[in-house]
Design a binder for these strands. Sequence first.
DNA 1: TAGGCCATCTGGTCCT
DNA 2: AGGACCAGATGGCCTA
Length: 180
Amino acid sequence: MKSKGKGSKRNGRSWAEQDDPDFTLETEPGSSEQEGSEASVRLDRTWRTRRSDGGSRAGTRRRRHNGSAKERNVRRLESNERERQRMHTLNNAFQALREAIPHVKTDKKLSKIETLTLAKNYIKSLTTIILGMSSACLPHEKQESNASRILQCYQQHLEEEGEEDLSSYLKNIHTFSQGS
DNA sequence: TAGGCCATCTGGTCCT
DNA sequence: AGGACCAGATGGCCTA
């Protein structure tokens, strides 16, 4: 695994590596806190940005940190690990999506935004194909409502036949396309 | 070298 | 209360 260590190199030391019991919160020199603006604050020697607006993320009240600095460090490290795992799960899902969508093979792997865009276009293409062969299920209606009609039809099938019968549903679509 | 992409850290907020 | 989720910040790697 590549050694990234992005945040861990901030100021030479990571938050978790810092064992400063004195929690500091002060405004950055030269910046003034304004309503609805973002202000840089210093947390444990680290300049960061926090919202000070009155919106849904407002409040800026800090969760009370109980325990010693050492205990906070442990919690932070555990939280970092969970976040890493969460992002790995997300990346695995992206990889599965990359493999699920057909695209021109290149040495360079698809970026996340490319993957999402291609997936969206792929779904649209499949929808168009299905529309062309599902007139029995879908009565003639306005074109733009057909996608949601397909979804309704699919959900109705799930309710009536159950998920285990999905393969036969797909088979039916396949045979239907061959017959038409 | 600038810009794109990414992994990671971090703290605030949401949710159970 | 604590974990999940989210978004900002940061810095490394790669390519044009």
